[in-house]
């Protein structure tokens, strides 16, 4: 089996992104009110993105024996829901940039942005409804159940992270971090798209538990790399606010490592920084935090921790795809393990 390199992986993601984007536009209403609603709804999807979720969903559909078009409404629903989460997350996190441009609430105000996020959720429901006609009631109900489970997990994870920040929670471990990203990120970024694709492609026969394992390891490797890039990545490629996670007080693996390793004055510096509200955090404090992370090896720790999880993803892939014949789609899904750790955007 020939492995795919990083560049072909990105070309494949782009191809799936274009396919899903074209289908997604068909779900965007063209009537009024454009200025206050539909233009805002179309904004984030039009900004592009890595298209990881639709690619996983569609590649999994085909790898498990289905047709690309059978997974398309689900891929569209997933993208719409993803963008809805982004709009609301950006407000909750007071984020400044999304995909290289000002966030929706900065451009249009919080009330209209929240409403546009709600509209994206409603449109995702419309895309899911089309599954009934395409896949039949039994399979469409199975996919809808998967969406409900995914949305529930994601909201639980988001609530946990927001709660930690509100209450200034500091006594966290790597286990807490993994449990958080299992809910907040992995379920909807990797686990759910893989499971939905497998469900559709195999007509409900695939072992979905095996895909929870592979999806989680893949998603955790993705998230850890995302956290590292947020601090030391090239912002022109990364697209989000540089060091935004630190400004927002997120409990990333590096922050948790720093809290566990520092003592004395360094420990007090980190604790004081964590206790601040976002507007109180300065560029100098951010630079000091990154310097401490370098000194205590927190960045290296996160990278190595991610490598260990990527190794687990290799094993989990072989188990989850043991009965799936070789195909370009299967190879792409396997190649994503390495890509997660090597990507720079």
């Amino acid at each position: 089996m020939t492995p795919l390199e990083v560049a072909p992986v990105e070309a494949e993601l782009e191809r799936y992104g274009a396919l899903t984007g074209e289908a997604l536009r068909a779900y965007l209403p063209e009537g009024e009110p454009r200025r206050y609603l539909w233009d805002l709804v179309a904004d984030y999807p039009a900004r592009g993105g890595k298209a990881l979720r639709p690619a996983l969903c569609l590649a999994s559909t085909v790898a498990f024996g289905g047709e690309t078009c059978e997974g398309l409404p689900s891929a569209v629903a997933l993208e719409l829901l993803h963008n809805a989460f982004l709009v609301h997350d950006d407000i909750e996190d007071a984020s400044l940039l999304r995909r290289g441009h000002p966030t929706l609430h900065l451009e249009h105000g919080v009330p209209l942005a929240i409403n546009a996020g709600d509209a994206l959720v409603v449109l995702a429901g419309a895309a899911l409804r089309d599954n009934r006609r395409l896949l039949g009631s039994r399979l469409a109900t199975g996919v809808a159940d998967e969406f409900e489970l995914m949305a529930r997990r994601t909201i639980e994870g988001q609530a946990r992270e927001l709660g930690w920040r509100r209450d200034g929670v500091r006594d966290l471990t790597a286990d807490d971090y993994l449990d958080l990203i299992m809910h907040k990120t992995c379920w909807y970024t990797t686990i759910h798209p893989l499971r939905v694709g497998a469900l559709i492609g195999s007509l409900g026969r695939a072992d979905l538990d095996a895909l929870v394992r592979f999806g989680f390891y893949l998603g955790a490797a993705f998230q850890i790399q995302d956290d590292v890039l947020n601090l030391v990545g090239d912002q022109s490629k990364y697209g989000k606010e540089s060091c935004g996670d630190l400004y927002e007080g997120k409990r990333t693996l590096m922050v948790i490592h720093l809290l566990s390793e520092t003592r004395g004055d360094d420990r007090r510096t980190v604790e004081r920084f964590i206790a601040l509200e976002r507007p109180e955090r300065t560029a100098e404090q951010i630079a000091a935090m990154i310097a401490l992370m370098r000194e205590y090896g927190s960045l290296e720790f996160a990278r190595e921790f991610g490598l260990g999880i990527a190794a687990a993803a290799e094993d989990a892939f072989e188990l989850a795809f043991a009965d799936v014949p070789d195909s370009p789609e299967r190879r792409l899904l396997h190649a994503l393990i390495g890509w997660m750790l090597e990507r720079d955007s």
């Binding site: 286990d175 299992m182 929870v212 394992r213 989680f216 720790f301 260990g308 687990a312």
Partner: peptide, 24 residues
């Protein structure tokens, strides 16, 4: 040391995912 961190990552992730499957 690197291998130890990688092993810790692998084990912690396996614990979390099995707990989630049991919860399901």
């Amino acid at each position: 040391a690197m291998a130890e961190v990688q092993r810790a990552g692998l084990e912690a992730a396996a614990t979390v995912v099995e707990r989630m499957l049991e919860l399901g």
